[in-house]
Design a protein around this nucleic acid. Structure first.
Lengths: 402, 402
DNA sequence: CTCTTATTATTAAGCCACTAAATTTAACGT
DNA sequence: ACGTTAAATTTAGTGGCTTAATAATAAGAG
């Protein structure tokens, strides 16, 4: 059955808000040009946003003659959104303002082997701490975006995967966090969130893919400004595509999965078979920490570590070429904790391989970039989801008086 | 720059027309339920379609009490659309009626090494022949859909690829065919067209991928009823993803491309290195003919041919798993001339591998099917594109008098 | 200083696609 | 004949946009 009801188009006010954030200072005329709508419509959209207190006029543009353009800007402190991204090994919490700027950030402990209830209560506490630290009044906080790995039911706010432990499957993540904090909670795939987080930045394209590496590998595709969500609203499972046809079986059932070869678990697993490497780098902590240690060693010339990272790079390049060939995007952005420290090492390798292997490269080039803040992008993106949801569901805000 | 103007939503009349075709005989109440819109809206939509002559009332449903539902049906002969799909080796022309039924079909010669002008003139002649054969009046023909391989600019109606020969690049395909026939022409990617063609059939899902194999391998993804088109409106380049990390370089720049291993060119290329196979199967004709001969031989127990086809199957399965993992679709449909004869051999292998390797299989199953008419699906889909374009662009038809 | 010109912003009127609610139509049972 | 029930239609709106007219604002010309 086809679904007709859901209108995937971004409502005008939301689009205008995004544009104002993107351009920082902008006139109504420019907004009209950028959206393809009329100036009259921009008058209305800007008026709505002003009535919400989200934007204000900040002056006039110089012009040779004629009425000068009146410039509008966001009022960053008009609202705040919380974003939390976590997986087994690591977690990041942020509070962003309306302009998308990170006001507070905290590294948080990953979920580890704990029960979801315990983890959520810790994060709920972190939300309080962060808001207090920046002395942000609760009524200005629109909600919390929660970015996690794996298949999920965004509507219900639950994970569909039994990882890290069976307790997580169907556990009411969104509902419990909402209860514990008193704030609305939206669930989002971490790689997709990273895509949204990257999109919020200044020179963001509207067609790109994020390759996300933290505990595992995933991808988020933003196409024509909208996140791609398959049939069941999930992320793009880049980590479980085969990059070694005769590779070992992965727990997912597939052979030679990218995650097993290029991901932190795969690289660390390889390293743990090498005694000298273990003692030299002091391995044996959690997977991500070990992976970062290996990466640092490779960057500073450790030959054995280099071999491991090279393998990881090469296979990630294969997968990224596949991703680009299938989705036909013009840019790839690297994000996630695993890229935070030496993402540029991966970047160069990817760019080189893409330049010679992407099918569409003669029609358009494909650029690889590192996210502005690789480790925070998913949390920031999750926080942005809150705002988007709000603006896309009509009637949440009082319509301004005419 | 983000684009806001384009509304990706299918207009109501188009959606209603599709539903009527899908259900054959249907009441306004059912249409309202299926679309999620009100009965009043269905009254209007059906009235418009009746004013166009596209649907008519055919009777009333029995009901215990209350006003009986008035049933509407398509008027199949209200309009006709032409579809032509071609590549280097093969081509198919069809005329379909409004109900999507194939009224005429013709096998046509592929483009071969000829100049585009010559090929187009031949196809233009075929259009005339087909329309005459079914004695279809010209004014009832809405237009021609042209499905071809490779990167293309659908807006301009030109190919962006210099294949089969450099003459094709930027050659005004749509414009010239339009001139030669006097009918509007829409260009479409062949794999995407196959998706649209499959979708038109009775039990079509709204989320699926088509794996298309004719001269080469491609894919079309239909998500939420709409074809996925990347940043540059192209198909999903399944044929050029790597399925053998250390495989030979392909002309596209990538290594171990699916097309080189599983595609007709790859399989035939392998076969041509085997003298006994060549003479036994009488190879040496064009690539697709040879491939079909090898497939038939494998099906009837030729051991050497079986090895080749098995390799092809296995690697196609790897690529299909990748496709499903990345796009998260619930169904895969096989289409294209190469599957027309022994597609079921591929189907079983794919289903088996997908069942044990797709990441989301615990959340939802993935079914593999053969298209109803594998060889014709792209041409039929191309023909449907004409109708869609017409209904989605407003003001093409006179608004019915109230 | 006033008038013209160029440009931007706002308002007014209206269109389009849809909805909600009231009304009409068509069958049935008593 | 009369009520009951359900479907279809009409009516009157609504929301989000457009076009076209109008108002505001500044630079430069005279």
């Amino acid at each position: 059955m086809r679904s007709f009801g859901a209108d995937t188009r971004m409502p005008t006010v939301a689009a205008v808000l995004d544009l104002i954030r993107e351009r920082r200072t902008v006139s109504r005329v420019e907004l009209a040009e950028a959206t393809g709508m009329t100036q009259a419509t921009m008058t209305h959209a800007v008026r709505k946003l002003m009535a919400m207190g989200f934007v204000h006029e900040v002056g006039k543009a110089r012009s040779s003659n004629g009425m000068p353009r009146r410039l509008v800007e966001l009022v960053p402190e008009a609202s705040y959104q919380v974003g939390i991204q976590f997986d087994r090994y690591t977690a990041v919490g942020v509070v962003i303002d309306l302009a998308g700027a990170t006001v507070v950030r905290r590294d948080l402990p990953g979920a580890g082997d704990r029960h979801p209830e315990e983890v959520l209560l810790e994060y709920a506490g972190a939300v309080d701490t962060m808001l207090d630290a920046a002395s942000i009044p609760r009524e200005k906080v629109l909600g919390i975006g929660l970015a996690t790995h794996g298949p999920q039911d965004r509507g219900k706010g639950v994970l569909l995967t039994p990882q890290p432990s069976p307790d997580w499957r169907e556990f009411p993540l969104a509902a419990r966090l909402q209860e514990a904090t008193g704030l609305p909670v939206a669930l989002e795939n971490d790689a997709t969130a990273a895509g949204i987080g990257v999109q919020a930045k200044a020179d963001a394209a509207s067609n790109f893919a994020v390759v996300f590496m933290s505990g595992g590998i995933g991808a988020g595709v933003i196409i024509d400004g909208h996140p791609y969500r398959g049939a069941t609203s999930n992320g793009v499972e880049l980590g479980h595509i085969s990059v070694e046809a005769r590779g070992p079986r992965c727990a997912c059932g597939n052979r030679g999965c990218l995650d097993m070869i290029s991901g932190p678990a795969g690289v660390t697993g390889q390293a743990m078979r090498n005694r000298s490497l273990i003692s030299r780098l002091g391995l044996g902590k959690d997977t991500l920490t070990d992976f970062l240690a290996i990466g640092r060693a490779a960057a500073s010339g450790d030959a054995e570590a280099e071999v491991l990272i090279d393998t990881s790079k090469q296979h990630l390049a294969i997968a990224t070429i596949t991703l680009v060939n299938l989705f036909d995007v013009g840019r790839v952005v690297l994000a996630g904790a695993a890229f935070a420290e030496f993402g540029d090492v991966y970047l160069d390798a990817l760019q080189e391989d893409l330049d010679e292997s992407v099918f569409m490269r003669h029609v358009h080039s494909v650029q690889v970039r590192l996210a502005e803040n690789p480790a925070d992008a998913p949390a920031v993106g999750a926080a942005m989801v809150v705002l988007r949801d709000l603006l896309e569901s009509p009637g949440e805000f009082p319509t301004p008086a005419t």
